[in-house]
C-alpha cells in the first residue's frame, strides 16, 4: 500500500520540481516553502540538479558525420553513371577483413571472423 501512495506522490513532487525548474527565479523561494517538506527520502532537488548538470554537460551533442538530409534526396546514385561505378563490385570478391578504425579500439581485433 505504501508503494501505491508513493507512485502518486512521486509524480506530484516531480511535477513540482519540473515546474520549479521552468521558472528558475522562483526556485530559491520555492525550496524554502512547504513544497520541499513533502519530498520522499532520497528525492530532492539536488538529485535533479545533478541529472540536469550531467545532461547539460552532454548538451548539444554533435552528430559527427551524420547527414540529416532525407536520403531520398540521394545526390549520389541518382544518376545512372553513379550506378555504373558500382558494377565493378563483384559480390564474390567479398571483403572479409574490416579495414576501418576497429583496430584502433583497445581490445579490438583485426582477424576475420
Amino acid at each position: 500500500m505504501k508503494r501505491r501512495i508513493f507512485a502518486a506522490s512521486a509524480l506530484s513532487v516531480a511535477i513540482g520540481l519540473a515546474l520549479a525548474a521552468q521558472a528558475p527565479q522562483t526556485l530559491a523561494q520555492g525550496t524554502k516553502d512547504e513544497g520541499m517538506m513533502n519530498l520522499p527520502p532520497g528525492a530532492n532537488a539536488a538529485v535533479v540538479k545533478q541529472n540536469m548538470d550531467r545532461m547539460m554537460a552532454q548538451h548539444l551533442e554533435k552528430c559527427f558525420g551524420i547527414n540529416a538530409v532525407a536520403k531520398n534526396d540521394c545526390a549520389e546514385g541518382a544518376h545512372s553513371c553513379a550506378g555504373q561505378a558500382t558494377q565493378a563490385r563483384d559480390p564474390k570478391s567479398f571483403v572479409l577483413l574490416p579495414g576501418g578504425d576497429c583496430g584502433k579500439i583497445a581490445g579490438g581485433t583485426l582477424k576475420a571472423g
Binding site: 501505491r4 507512485a7 519540473a18 528525492a43
Partner: peptide
C-alpha cells in the same frame, strides 16, 4: 504505478522530474 513497481530500486521522483524538464 506498474512501471515504478517493476523498476525496483529507483528514485522515481528524480527520473520523472528530469524527464519532464
Amino acid at each position: 504505478q506498474d512501471a515504478i513497481e517493476a523498476a525496483g530500486d529507483v528514485d522515481a521522483v528524480a527520473v520523472l522530474a528530469t524527464h519532464l524538464i
